Computed example of a mutant assay.
Amino acid sequence: MDTTPSLTGCNLFATKQAARFITQLYERHLAPVNVTSSQVTLLAVIHERPEITMTELSEMVVMDRTSLVRAIQPLSRDGYVVQKSEAGSRKIGLSLSKAGTRKFLDALPHWRAAQKEYEELVGKDRAKFLREELMAVTQR
């Protein structure tokens, strides 16, 4: 008797498979503005929360600091994200530059198109349900 578990019953396999599929959909839509889905996510959070610290951003996007630093580097290098620290403080706040705000706003119509395509594929109500359930997994 084979006791090897089936991948069809694996939560990780199903989640990663869906994540790759959804990421590819969004990447296709965002390609014309030369920004990745991960970068749009970071730009969106920083746009909504100017002066957010690396620790706060790391917790919000559920990413370890090393990976977050690597993800922020190209956005900083390209002048989209600026880092500010208060005098005498080790806290570094992240904000969007004018170019970063422009890049984020340029990406929005493409992001909306990706959202629309995804919702058409899975259904608007189901998309909302899945989104809420997945967000609940990471809430502490």
Rank of each mutant, 00 (worst) to 15 (best):
M1T: 12
T3R: 15
T3H: 14
T3S: 13
T4A: 06
P5Y: 11
P5E: 10
P5K: 00
L7Y: 14
L7K: 14
T8S: 10
G9P: 08
C10H: 12
L12I: 14
F13P: 03
F13A: 05
K16F: 15
K16D: 07
Q17N: 11
Q17C: 09
A18H: 10
A19R: 15
A19F: 13
R20D: 07
R20M: 05
I22A: 06
T23Y: 11
Q24M: 13
R28N: 14
H29E: 08
L30Y: 02
P32L: 00
V33L: 03
V33D: 13
V33T: 02
N34Q: 09
V35Y: 00
S38W: 07
Q39H: 14
V40S: 01
T41E: 07
T41P: 05
L42S: 00
L42G: 03
V45K: 15
H47G: 02
E48L: 13
E48M: 07
R49E: 12
P50W: 08
I52P: 14
M54E: 14
M54H: 15
E56R: 06
S58V: 00
M60E: 13
V61N: 01
V61S: 02
V61A: 01
V62G: 01
D64R: 07
T66N: 02
S67I: 11
S67E: 14
L68R: 03
V69Y: 12
V69W: 12
A71Q: 13
Q73I: 04
P74M: 08
L75G: 09
S76D: 13
R77A: 11
Y80T: 01
K84L: 07
E86V: 08
E86A: 10
E86I: 08
G88I: 02
G88K: 01
R90F: 09
K91Y: 03
K91W: 02
G93T: 01
G93P: 05
L94T: 00
S97N: 05
S97R: 01
A99Q: 07
A99D: 05
A99L: 06
R102L: 03
F104S: 01
L105R: 09
D106Q: 10
A107R: 00
A107E: 08
P109K: 00
H110K: 11
H110D: 04
K116M: 15
E117A: 10
E117T: 12
Y118N: 10
V122R: 12
G123V: 04
D125F: 13
D125I: 00
D125N: 11
R126G: 03
K128A: 15
F129R: 14
F129T: 15
E132Q: 14
E132W: 06
M135V: 08
A136C: 06
T138N: 08
R140Y: 13
R140A: 08
